[in-house]
Design a protein around this nucleic acid. Structure first.
Lengths: 186, 186
DNA sequence: TATCTATTTTGATAAATATCAAAATAAAAT
DNA sequence: ATTTTATTTTGATATTTATCAAAATAGATA
Protein backbone atom coordinates (compact mmCIF):
# COMPACT_ATOMS: atom_id res chain seq x y z
CA UNK A 1 0.00 0.00 0.00
CA UNK A 2 1.40 3.35 -1.03
CA UNK A 3 1.71 6.30 1.28
CA UNK A 4 -1.07 8.17 -0.51
CA UNK A 5 -3.38 5.18 -0.24
CA UNK A 6 -2.70 4.92 3.46
CA UNK A 7 -3.60 8.54 3.90
CA UNK A 8 -6.83 8.07 1.95
CA UNK A 9 -7.71 5.09 4.09
CA UNK A 10 -7.20 6.99 7.32
CA UNK A 11 -9.21 9.88 5.97
CA UNK A 12 -12.08 7.53 5.41
CA UNK A 13 -11.96 6.47 9.03
CA UNK A 14 -11.70 10.03 10.26
CA UNK A 15 -15.30 11.01 9.74
CA UNK A 16 -18.12 10.39 12.15
CA UNK A 17 -20.64 9.47 9.49
CA UNK A 18 -18.32 7.12 7.65
CA UNK A 19 -17.32 5.45 10.89
CA UNK A 20 -20.97 4.85 11.68
CA UNK A 21 -21.54 3.47 8.22
CA UNK A 22 -18.68 1.04 8.67
CA UNK A 23 -19.96 0.03 12.08
CA UNK A 24 -23.37 -0.61 10.62
CA UNK A 25 -22.00 -2.62 7.74
CA UNK A 26 -19.91 -4.62 10.18
CA UNK A 27 -23.18 -5.95 11.58
CA UNK A 28 -25.00 -6.58 8.33
CA UNK A 29 -25.15 -5.49 4.72
CA UNK A 30 -27.35 -2.50 4.06
CA UNK A 31 -28.63 -0.34 1.24
CA UNK A 32 -28.36 3.41 0.90
CA UNK A 33 -31.77 4.46 2.12
CA UNK A 34 -31.66 2.30 5.18
CA UNK A 35 -28.29 3.76 6.16
CA UNK A 36 -29.71 7.22 5.58
CA UNK A 37 -32.56 6.48 7.95
CA UNK A 38 -30.28 4.98 10.59
CA UNK A 39 -27.80 7.84 10.56
CA UNK A 40 -30.42 10.53 10.03
CA UNK A 41 -28.77 11.83 6.87
CA UNK A 42 -29.99 12.18 3.30
CA UNK A 43 -29.44 9.49 0.71
CA UNK A 44 -27.10 11.68 -1.37
CA UNK A 45 -24.86 12.16 1.64
CA UNK A 46 -24.71 8.43 2.27
CA UNK A 47 -23.98 7.86 -1.39
CA UNK A 48 -21.17 10.41 -1.19
CA UNK A 49 -19.58 8.59 1.72
CA UNK A 50 -20.02 5.14 0.23
CA UNK A 51 -18.25 6.27 -2.88
CA UNK A 52 -15.26 7.39 -0.86
CA UNK A 53 -15.26 4.14 1.04
CA UNK A 54 -15.47 2.16 -2.18
CA UNK A 55 -12.56 4.15 -3.61
CA UNK A 56 -10.25 2.78 -0.95
CA UNK A 57 -11.71 -0.71 -1.15
CA UNK A 58 -13.40 -0.49 2.24
CA UNK A 59 -16.80 -1.53 0.92
CA UNK A 60 -18.18 -3.37 -2.07
CA UNK A 61 -21.70 -3.41 -3.47
CA UNK A 62 -23.97 -5.93 -5.11
CA UNK A 63 -27.45 -5.73 -6.52
CA UNK A 64 -30.50 -7.37 -5.05
CA UNK A 65 -33.89 -7.07 -6.64
CA UNK A 66 -34.65 -3.60 -5.39
CA UNK A 67 -31.58 -2.29 -3.77
CA UNK A 68 -27.88 -1.83 -4.12
CA UNK A 69 -26.54 -3.59 -1.06
CA UNK A 70 -23.27 -2.47 0.45
CA UNK A 71 -20.96 -4.78 2.37
CA UNK A 72 -17.84 -4.26 4.46
CA UNK A 73 -14.49 -5.43 3.10
CA UNK A 74 -12.79 -6.61 6.27
CA UNK A 75 -9.44 -7.27 4.68
CA UNK A 76 -8.57 -3.62 4.31
CA UNK A 77 -8.85 -3.05 8.04
CA UNK A 78 -6.91 -6.07 9.22
CA UNK A 79 -3.48 -4.44 9.62
CA UNK A 80 -2.74 -2.57 12.81
CA UNK A 81 -2.26 1.14 12.54
CA UNK A 82 1.32 0.70 13.64
CA UNK A 83 1.97 -1.47 10.62
CA UNK A 84 0.92 1.34 8.35
CA UNK A 85 2.91 3.94 10.23
CA UNK A 86 6.01 1.78 10.08
CA UNK A 87 5.59 1.07 6.39
CA UNK A 88 8.60 2.49 4.64
CA UNK A 89 8.15 5.80 2.96
CA UNK A 90 9.29 6.26 -0.57
CA UNK A 91 12.85 5.08 -1.04
CA UNK A 92 14.17 8.60 -1.48
CA UNK A 93 12.58 9.68 1.75
CA UNK A 94 14.09 6.77 3.59
CA UNK A 95 17.52 7.64 2.34
CA UNK A 96 17.09 11.25 3.34
CA UNK A 97 16.08 10.00 6.73
CA UNK A 98 19.24 7.97 7.15
CA UNK A 99 21.41 10.83 5.92
CA UNK A 100 19.82 13.28 8.28
CA UNK A 101 20.15 10.92 11.24
CA UNK A 102 23.83 10.49 10.51
CA UNK A 103 24.30 14.21 10.08
CA UNK A 104 22.73 14.92 13.44
CA UNK A 105 24.88 12.29 15.07
CA UNK A 106 28.03 13.90 13.72
CA UNK A 107 26.94 17.39 14.66
CA UNK A 108 26.12 16.37 18.18
CA UNK A 109 29.40 14.55 18.53
CA UNK A 110 31.56 17.47 17.43
CA UNK A 111 29.61 20.57 18.37
CA UNK A 112 28.75 21.17 21.96
CA UNK A 113 27.48 24.36 23.47
CA UNK A 114 28.04 26.08 20.16
CA UNK A 115 31.73 25.23 20.16
CA UNK A 116 33.58 22.83 17.91
CA UNK A 117 35.30 20.25 20.13
CA UNK A 118 37.71 19.28 17.40
CA UNK A 119 37.95 19.30 13.63
CA UNK A 120 36.93 15.86 12.30
CA UNK A 121 39.72 13.92 10.64
CA UNK A 122 37.36 12.10 8.30
CA UNK A 123 36.62 14.22 5.27
CA UNK A 124 32.98 13.14 5.18
CA UNK A 125 32.43 14.25 8.74
CA UNK A 126 34.30 17.47 8.37
CA UNK A 127 32.13 18.35 5.39
CA UNK A 128 29.04 18.00 7.53
CA UNK A 129 30.55 20.31 10.12
CA UNK A 130 31.57 22.85 7.52
CA UNK A 131 28.10 22.88 6.01
CA UNK A 132 26.78 23.65 9.43
CA UNK A 133 29.25 26.48 10.03
CA UNK A 134 28.36 27.87 6.64
CA UNK A 135 24.98 28.86 8.04
CA UNK A 136 26.74 31.64 9.95
CA UNK A 137 27.39 33.41 6.67
CA UNK A 138 24.72 35.28 4.76
CA UNK A 139 24.16 34.11 1.19
CA UNK A 140 25.35 36.62 -1.40
CA UNK A 141 27.31 38.75 1.01
CA UNK A 142 31.05 39.24 0.55
CA UNK A 143 33.23 39.01 3.68
CA UNK A 144 36.77 40.22 4.31
CA UNK A 145 39.23 37.58 5.43
CA UNK A 146 39.25 39.24 8.83
CA UNK A 147 35.46 38.88 9.11
CA UNK A 148 35.62 35.23 8.11
CA UNK A 149 38.28 34.59 10.73
CA UNK A 150 36.23 36.21 13.48
CA UNK A 151 33.16 34.18 12.65
CA UNK A 152 35.04 30.90 12.43
CA UNK A 153 37.13 31.61 15.52
CA UNK A 154 33.86 31.52 17.39
CA UNK A 155 33.76 27.80 16.78
CA UNK A 156 37.39 26.74 17.00
CA UNK A 157 40.80 28.26 17.56
CA UNK A 158 42.11 26.80 14.35
CA UNK A 159 40.03 29.05 12.13
CA UNK A 160 42.72 28.97 9.45
CA UNK A 161 42.13 25.30 8.75
CA UNK A 162 38.39 25.84 8.73
CA UNK A 163 38.68 28.75 6.31
CA UNK A 164 41.01 26.87 4.02
CA UNK A 165 38.78 23.77 3.94
CA UNK A 166 35.71 25.87 3.19
CA UNK A 167 37.44 26.79 -0.02
CA UNK A 168 38.72 23.24 -0.56
CA UNK A 169 35.22 21.78 -0.24
CA UNK A 170 33.89 24.46 -2.57
CA UNK A 171 31.54 25.71 0.06
CA UNK A 172 33.04 29.18 -0.18
CA UNK A 173 34.91 30.98 -2.90
CA UNK A 174 37.33 33.91 -2.85
CA UNK A 175 38.86 36.52 -5.04
CA UNK A 176 40.79 39.73 -4.41
CA UNK A 177 37.69 41.36 -2.82
CA UNK A 178 37.03 38.70 -0.25
CA UNK A 179 35.12 35.53 0.60
CA UNK A 180 31.51 34.47 -0.10
CA UNK A 181 29.21 31.51 0.24
CA UNK A 182 28.61 29.24 -2.70
CA UNK A 183 25.00 28.13 -2.55
CA UNK A 184 23.95 25.03 -4.41
CA UNK A 185 20.57 25.80 -5.85
CA UNK A 186 17.71 23.75 -4.44
CA UNK B 1 -11.80 3.46 24.15
CA UNK B 2 -14.92 5.53 23.57
CA UNK B 3 -16.37 6.24 20.16
CA UNK B 4 -15.32 9.89 20.32
CA UNK B 5 -11.76 8.95 21.24
CA UNK B 6 -11.59 6.55 18.32
CA UNK B 7 -12.69 9.29 15.99
CA UNK B 8 -10.07 11.67 17.38
CA UNK B 9 -7.40 9.03 16.92
CA UNK B 10 -8.33 8.43 13.31
CA UNK B 11 -8.40 12.15 12.68
CA UNK B 12 -4.84 12.35 13.88
CA UNK B 13 -3.82 9.73 11.36
CA UNK B 14 -5.73 11.41 8.55
CA UNK B 15 -3.33 14.24 7.94
CA UNK B 16 -0.27 14.10 5.74
CA UNK B 17 1.91 16.13 8.06
CA UNK B 18 0.94 14.22 11.18
CA UNK B 19 1.45 10.92 9.42
CA UNK B 20 4.94 12.03 8.45
CA UNK B 21 5.62 13.12 11.99
CA UNK B 22 4.59 9.73 13.28
CA UNK B 23 6.71 7.98 10.68
CA UNK B 24 9.66 10.07 11.69
CA UNK B 25 9.14 9.41 15.37
CA UNK B 26 8.82 5.71 14.64
CA UNK B 27 12.46 5.83 13.57
CA UNK B 28 13.82 7.98 16.36
CA UNK B 29 12.81 10.61 18.86
CA UNK B 30 13.00 14.16 17.57
CA UNK B 31 12.53 17.73 18.68
CA UNK B 32 10.28 20.34 17.13
CA UNK B 33 12.76 22.22 15.00
CA UNK B 34 14.23 19.13 13.50
CA UNK B 35 10.81 17.88 12.49
CA UNK B 36 10.08 21.28 11.00
CA UNK B 37 13.21 21.08 8.92
CA UNK B 38 12.48 17.52 7.79
CA UNK B 39 8.90 18.20 6.77
CA UNK B 40 9.60 21.66 5.45
CA UNK B 41 7.07 23.29 7.75
CA UNK B 42 7.37 25.98 10.40
CA UNK B 43 7.95 25.18 14.04
CA UNK B 44 4.52 26.50 15.08
CA UNK B 45 2.84 24.13 12.66
CA UNK B 46 4.77 21.19 14.03
CA UNK B 47 3.92 22.27 17.53
CA UNK B 48 0.27 22.45 16.56
CA UNK B 49 0.32 18.89 15.26
CA UNK B 50 2.28 17.51 18.19
CA UNK B 51 -0.27 18.93 20.55
CA UNK B 52 -3.06 17.12 18.75
CA UNK B 53 -1.06 13.93 18.77
CA UNK B 54 -0.34 14.31 22.46
CA UNK B 55 -4.03 14.86 23.15
CA UNK B 56 -4.86 11.37 21.95
CA UNK B 57 -1.82 9.84 23.62
CA UNK B 58 0.00 9.16 20.37
CA UNK B 59 3.19 10.90 21.45
CA UNK B 60 4.86 11.86 24.69
CA UNK B 61 7.61 14.39 25.35
CA UNK B 62 10.61 14.67 27.63
CA UNK B 63 13.23 17.31 28.17
CA UNK B 64 16.86 17.05 27.27
CA UNK B 65 19.31 19.81 27.94
CA UNK B 66 18.36 21.93 24.97
CA UNK B 67 15.31 20.44 23.43
CA UNK B 68 11.91 19.00 24.10
CA UNK B 69 12.13 15.57 22.60
CA UNK B 70 9.03 13.88 21.28
CA UNK B 71 8.59 10.11 21.18
CA UNK B 72 6.03 7.77 19.66
CA UNK B 73 3.64 5.90 21.95
CA UNK B 74 3.35 2.60 20.13
CA UNK B 75 0.65 1.17 22.36
CA UNK B 76 -2.05 3.40 20.97
CA UNK B 77 -1.53 2.06 17.47
CA UNK B 78 -1.39 -1.62 18.29
CA UNK B 79 -5.04 -2.52 17.66
CA UNK B 80 -6.14 -3.25 14.13
CA UNK B 81 -8.55 -0.82 12.55
CA UNK B 82 -11.13 -3.57 12.41
CA UNK B 83 -11.00 -3.89 16.18
CA UNK B 84 -11.96 -0.27 16.51
CA UNK B 85 -14.71 -0.48 13.92
CA UNK B 86 -16.18 -3.51 15.61
CA UNK B 87 -16.03 -1.95 19.04
CA UNK B 88 -19.57 -1.71 20.26
CA UNK B 89 -21.26 1.64 19.96
CA UNK B 90 -23.13 3.01 22.91
CA UNK B 91 -25.52 0.47 24.37
CA UNK B 92 -28.58 2.36 23.15
CA UNK B 93 -27.24 2.38 19.66
CA UNK B 94 -26.62 -1.33 19.72
CA UNK B 95 -30.15 -2.02 20.84
CA UNK B 96 -31.56 0.19 18.10
CA UNK B 97 -29.44 -1.77 15.69
CA UNK B 98 -30.87 -5.10 16.80
CA UNK B 99 -34.41 -3.77 16.70
CA UNK B 100 -34.00 -2.42 13.23
CA UNK B 101 -32.49 -5.66 11.97
CA UNK B 102 -35.43 -7.60 13.34
CA UNK B 103 -37.87 -5.11 11.86
CA UNK B 104 -36.35 -5.46 8.43
CA UNK B 105 -36.49 -9.22 8.68
CA UNK B 106 -40.18 -9.15 9.47
CA UNK B 107 -40.93 -6.65 6.73
CA UNK B 108 -39.10 -8.64 4.14
CA UNK B 109 -40.81 -11.81 5.25
CA UNK B 110 -44.34 -10.45 5.00
CA UNK B 111 -44.18 -7.75 2.36
CA UNK B 112 -43.14 -8.66 -1.13
CA UNK B 113 -43.50 -6.55 -4.19
CA UNK B 114 -45.44 -4.02 -2.16
CA UNK B 115 -48.07 -6.59 -1.21
CA UNK B 116 -48.75 -8.11 2.18
CA UNK B 117 -48.46 -11.89 1.84
CA UNK B 118 -50.43 -12.48 5.00
CA UNK B 119 -51.28 -10.72 8.23
CA UNK B 120 -48.85 -11.88 10.95
CA UNK B 121 -50.44 -13.88 13.72
CA UNK B 122 -47.90 -12.68 16.31
CA UNK B 123 -48.97 -9.35 17.70
CA UNK B 124 -45.39 -8.10 17.80
CA UNK B 125 -44.86 -8.79 14.13
CA UNK B 126 -48.20 -7.42 13.09
CA UNK B 127 -47.37 -4.18 14.88
CA UNK B 128 -44.23 -3.81 12.80
CA UNK B 129 -46.26 -4.33 9.63
CA UNK B 130 -48.91 -1.85 10.72
CA UNK B 131 -46.28 0.77 11.51
CA UNK B 132 -45.00 0.32 8.01
CA UNK B 133 -48.44 0.64 6.41
CA UNK B 134 -49.01 3.75 8.47
CA UNK B 135 -46.48 5.53 6.31
CA UNK B 136 -49.06 5.54 3.54
CA UNK B 137 -51.11 8.03 5.52
CA UNK B 138 -50.21 11.69 5.83
CA UNK B 139 -49.74 12.96 9.37
CA UNK B 140 -52.51 15.31 10.48
CA UNK B 141 -54.89 14.53 7.63
CA UNK B 142 -58.34 13.07 8.33
CA UNK B 143 -59.47 10.20 6.07
CA UNK B 144 -62.96 8.83 5.45
CA UNK B 145 -63.42 5.13 6.18
CA UNK B 146 -63.69 4.57 2.45
CA UNK B 147 -60.34 6.23 1.84
CA UNK B 148 -58.72 4.15 4.54
CA UNK B 149 -60.10 1.00 3.02
CA UNK B 150 -58.81 1.85 -0.42
CA UNK B 151 -55.31 2.50 0.87
CA UNK B 152 -55.18 -0.66 2.98
CA UNK B 153 -56.75 -2.81 0.29
CA UNK B 154 -53.68 -2.06 -1.75
CA UNK B 155 -51.72 -4.23 0.66
CA UNK B 156 -54.14 -7.02 1.51
CA UNK B 157 -57.71 -8.09 0.78
CA UNK B 158 -58.60 -8.19 4.43
CA UNK B 159 -58.41 -4.43 4.88
CA UNK B 160 -61.06 -4.60 7.58
CA UNK B 161 -58.75 -6.45 9.96
CA UNK B 162 -55.95 -4.08 9.17
CA UNK B 163 -58.13 -1.04 9.79
CA UNK B 164 -59.47 -2.43 13.03
CA UNK B 165 -55.99 -3.33 14.33
CA UNK B 166 -54.68 0.13 13.45
CA UNK B 167 -57.16 1.43 15.98
CA UNK B 168 -56.48 -1.42 18.41
CA UNK B 169 -52.76 -0.71 18.38
CA UNK B 170 -53.46 3.00 18.83
CA UNK B 171 -51.68 3.81 15.61
CA UNK B 172 -54.80 5.51 14.28
CA UNK B 173 -57.81 7.07 15.95
CA UNK B 174 -61.37 7.74 14.78
CA UNK B 175 -64.41 9.80 15.57
CA UNK B 176 -67.57 10.70 13.70
CA UNK B 177 -65.60 12.66 11.10
CA UNK B 178 -63.16 9.91 10.14
CA UNK B 179 -59.74 8.37 10.75
CA UNK B 180 -56.32 9.92 11.33
CA UNK B 181 -52.76 8.95 12.21
CA UNK B 182 -51.59 9.19 15.75
CA UNK B 183 -47.96 10.29 15.66
CA UNK B 184 -45.77 9.67 18.66
CA UNK B 185 -43.64 12.73 19.04
CA UNK B 186 -39.95 12.15 18.40
C1' DT C 1 -43.35 1.29 -23.25
C1' DA C 2 -44.33 3.96 -19.36
C1' DT C 3 -43.92 4.64 -14.53
C1' DC C 4 -42.18 4.29 -10.19
C1' DT C 5 -38.28 4.17 -7.03
C1' DA C 6 -33.38 3.89 -5.62
C1' DT C 7 -29.20 5.91 -6.43
C1' DT C 8 -25.96 9.16 -8.02
C1' DT C 9 -24.44 13.66 -9.71
C1' DT C 10 -24.35 18.66 -9.49
C1' DG C 11 -24.15 23.08 -7.39
C1' DA C 12 -24.14 25.76 -3.39
C1' DT C 13 -23.04 26.56 1.40
C1' DA C 14 -21.31 26.29 5.92
C1' DA C 15 -18.06 24.30 9.08
C1' DA C 16 -13.57 22.52 10.14
C1' DT C 17 -8.75 22.99 10.00
C1' DA C 18 -3.78 23.25 8.30
C1' DT C 19 -0.71 26.76 7.70
C1' DC C 20 2.04 30.90 8.47
C1' DA C 21 3.75 35.34 10.61
C1' DA C 22 4.15 37.66 14.65
C1' DA C 23 3.97 37.81 19.48
C1' DA C 24 4.41 35.62 23.91
C1' DT C 25 6.61 32.07 26.99
C1' DA C 26 9.89 29.30 28.76
C1' DA C 27 14.34 27.65 29.51
C1' DA C 28 19.36 27.79 29.37
C1' DA C 29 23.82 29.84 28.89
C1' DT C 30 26.84 33.50 29.55
C1' DA D 1 20.66 39.83 35.23
C1' DT D 2 20.76 39.56 30.34
C1' DT D 3 20.73 37.44 26.16
C1' DT D 4 19.96 33.73 23.27
C1' DT D 5 17.24 29.98 21.69
C1' DA D 6 13.30 26.56 21.57
C1' DT D 7 8.60 26.21 21.94
C1' DT D 8 3.92 27.59 22.17
C1' DT D 9 0.05 30.76 21.55
C1' DT D 10 -2.61 34.02 18.84
C1' DG D 11 -4.82 35.87 14.87
C1' DA D 12 -5.67 35.65 10.10
C1' DT D 13 -6.30 33.15 5.86
C1' DA D 14 -7.04 29.73 2.46
C1' DT D 15 -8.22 25.08 1.61
C1' DT D 16 -10.85 21.17 2.30
C1' DT D 17 -15.04 18.89 2.77
C1' DA D 18 -19.57 17.27 4.81
C1' DT D 19 -24.06 18.33 3.96
C1' DC D 20 -28.40 19.28 1.56
C1' DA D 21 -31.76 20.35 -2.26
C1' DA D 22 -32.62 19.70 -6.80
C1' DA D 23 -31.73 17.50 -11.01
C1' DA D 24 -30.18 13.54 -13.60
C1' DT D 25 -29.59 8.62 -14.10
C1' DA D 26 -30.44 3.95 -13.70
C1' DG D 27 -33.22 -0.17 -12.66
C1' DA D 28 -37.21 -2.65 -11.99
C1' DT D 29 -42.18 -3.33 -12.23
C1' DA D 30 -46.43 -3.04 -14.41
Amino acid sequence: MTEAETLLLFKCLADKSRLQILKSLAVEDMYVERLAERLDLTAPTISFHLKKLADVGAVRSYKTQYYTMYALCDEVFKPSMLDLIREKSSEADLQAQRDEAYRQKVLQAFIQHGKLKSIPAQKKKERIILEELLKSFEPGRVYTEREVNIILADYHDDFCTLRRDMIGEHLMARDKNGYWRIDQQA
